[in-house]
Amino acid sequence: MINLIMNRLQALGRSGIDVVQNAGHTSLFLFYSLVGKPDFRYGAQRLIQQLYFVGVLSVLIISVSGLFIGMVLGLQGYTTLVKFGAEQALGQLIALSLVRELGPVVGALLFAGRAGSALTAEIGLMKISEQLSSMEMMGVDPLRRIIAPRFWAGQIAMPILSLIFTCVAIWGGYMVGVQWLGVDEGAFWSNMQASVDFDGDVVNGIIKSIVFGTVVTWIAVYQGVECAPTAEGIGTATTRTVVYSSLAILGLDFFLTAVMFGNT
């Protein structure tokens, strides 16, 4: 009996230590990949290259998804609002839901699926083919050389991608609401302009997407570096990146929304 209790206690202690150890490990990982003197000679070139891979190549999926989400919002919003004769408020509905929530959240989810998984797979493959080890043996710290530019690129690309997403989606909503269903164009835009507050809505949306960008790239590069060096390991790590990022995005979104908009 006492043994059983002791075993339970031991297991509890062990899992507690594991959690703390993991948290410490991931934080140190982030710290080491970001500190250190920046490399001005080749740093910019590498950053631009990574910006292209995680940012520019994600523009298409972000725009197309944004267009459809905006169109669906326009359609759904109209059919509901028209029952109350309030279809004039369609612009406001679309813009607020996109700027505050859907832009950053759906943008980040797509980013995790498109760029996050690619980052994990790429770094994992570098690990399998001993590229990271050989870099270490050449006296170059792989964390700084490989991880840092990818991390910063994700950080910069995410807010821009979510802004692109929001703009395209608003345009999609306009197409459906105004061009197709006949909402008054002037009312659509002026209601939107009157209700969306730059500091309260747009800036908060951007802050959200910066946070999501950090979390997604952090998870992606960490999973890549820590993956088991087998084909199966890469597969698992890539899946984990998408699952963990999605959960982190949705969880953090609730938290951030509560802090930003909870009092109003």
Binding site: M126, E130, Q131
Partner: peptide, 19 residues
């Protein structure tokens, strides 16, 4: 350690070229 490593070269089994 990084200083000492600059005096060493190592060839990995796969070559480990940067792809």
């Amino acid at each position: 350690l990084y200083q000492v490593r600059r005096r060493m070269g190592m060839l990995f089994q796969s070559g480990a070229l940067f792809s």
